[in-house]
């Protein structure tokens, strides 16, 4: 296949998005399917074929998605309205749009996300394994807890903190 001249290629935009909770393990393929489903619901196949959203990179806590220039506003709306990926509740927050991946990498290196560390704390009289960060966030990543269970707390709720 003949390679297109740079001037004839499509101009892309790359959207960097935070993924919450940071400890949730996701398959980039599932992220793509979820994004495609939501995009089809909002804009239809015609617009998706114009935007061409593609997952470029996924690492815990961050996601880089590519689209055609001019489609970044729609892509942002799509990412914002994703609430579930393969049965896992997530939240995607677009934080930066750039014309190059290098630009996003520079942004990422300057804005290191808070690291969550494993520990055990006592909540409501029970010792539970949790993930916490330096800002006081504590997540209880227990798969057995139902939707009405306490999963996201701060150091204020920890007994003896």
């Amino acid at each position: 296949m003949k390679i297109l001249l740079p001037s004839l290629r499509d101009n892309h935009r790359y959207v960097l998005s935070q993924v919450h909770p940071v400890w949730e393990s996701l398959d980039p393929r599932d992220v793509y399917y979820a994004m495609n489903d939501v995009a089809r619901g909002w804009f239809g196949d015609t617009r998706i074929s114009e935007i061409q959203p593609v997952v470029i990179r996924f690492s815990p806590g961050f996601l880089i998605v590519r689209c055609i220039r001019g489609g970044e506003a729609d892509l942002t709306a799509i990412l914002l309205t994703i609430v579930e990926i393969n049965g896992k509740r997530v939240k995607l927050c677009p934080v930066r749009t750039s014309g190059t991946i290098k630009g996003l990498n520079e942004f990422l290196s300057a804005h290191v996300p808070p690291v969550m560390s494993k520990q055990e704390v006592r909540v409501s009289g029970t010792l539970v394994p949790v993930l916490s960060d330096s800002q006081g966030r504590i997540d209880i990543p227990d798969d057995d807890t139902g939707p009405k269970q306490l999963r996201f707390i701060t150091t204020q709720e920890v007994e003896g903190a």
């Binding site: 269970q149 306490l150 999963r151 996201f152 707390i153």
Partner: peptide, 10 residues
């Protein structure tokens, strides 16, 4: 819900 009030505030 599953989030404490202090976490919502944070």
């Amino acid at each position: 819900g599953d989030t404490s009030l202090s976490r919502f505030a944070l």
